[in-house]
Simulated scan of single mutants.
Amino acid sequence: MPETDPQQPWEYTLHIPNDPRAVTVCHRTLRLILTMHGLITLVDVAELPATELVSNAVRHTKGPVALRVQWSPGVLRIGAWDADPEPPEPPNAWEQVAESEGGRGLALVRACADQWGWQPLSRHGRRGKYVWCAFAAA
């Protein structure tokens, strides 16, 4: 397997249909991307938050979705774009997660990632949002 220079930034975007089966495709694609770039140590911490971001986009919106995986030296950023411009619901506090029906996804993202956030996006006349999380490489 060719070595990847950890000082060189890279980025992948996977466009998926709004289909629950696509979440598994994203999960497996993320694992493959990180493994091929020699970031196997980040796979376990990144998979759950990435899966939650894509699951939320598929579950709570009607349009297409995209998974974005970016590497800048020392920082892995993963995000999900969807066609709904409405902001995500704020994550529940851990004390409320066990008692609530929903709100676990972003609470897990917040707990697992070093940072997370969202931003509205507009491109080619389409509006939406991008919800992301970041991990510092040890």
Rank of each mutant, 00 (worst) to 15 (best):
E89V: 13
V25M: 08
V54Q: 05
G103P: 03
G63M: 07
M36L: 15
V25G: 00
L53R: 02
S122D: 04
V65H: 02
E89P: 00
P87S: 13
P88S: 02
L76M: 07
V58A: 12
V25E: 10
A113E: 09
G63I: 06
C112E: 05
T35K: 10
W71G: 01
V97C: 14
I33W: 10
L106R: 02
L32H: 14
T61L: 10
L42Y: 03
E95W: 01
V75G: 02
P17Y: 10
V97P: 06
V69S: 01
R68P: 00
A57M: 06
R28M: 05
G125W: 12
G74T: 08
L48F: 05
D84R: 05
M36I: 00
L30M: 14
E101S: 11
G63H: 07
R68Q: 13
P64Q: 12
E101K: 12
A111V: 00
V45G: 07
D82N: 11
G63Y: 04
R28D: 11
V65R: 01
V43W: 10
L121T: 11
L67Q: 10
W116K: 04
T35I: 01
C26I: 07
R31N: 03
V97N: 11
A22R: 01
R123C: 10
L48N: 03
L106D: 03
R59G: 02
E52M: 11
G38R: 03
E95V: 06
L39V: 00
G125Y: 10
P91T: 05
H124Q: 14
L53Y: 05
P64F: 07
R104P: 00
A50P: 00
E95H: 03
S55R: 12
N92K: 13
H27P: 00
P120E: 09
R68I: 10
T29N: 08
G79D: 11
V109F: 14
G102F: 11
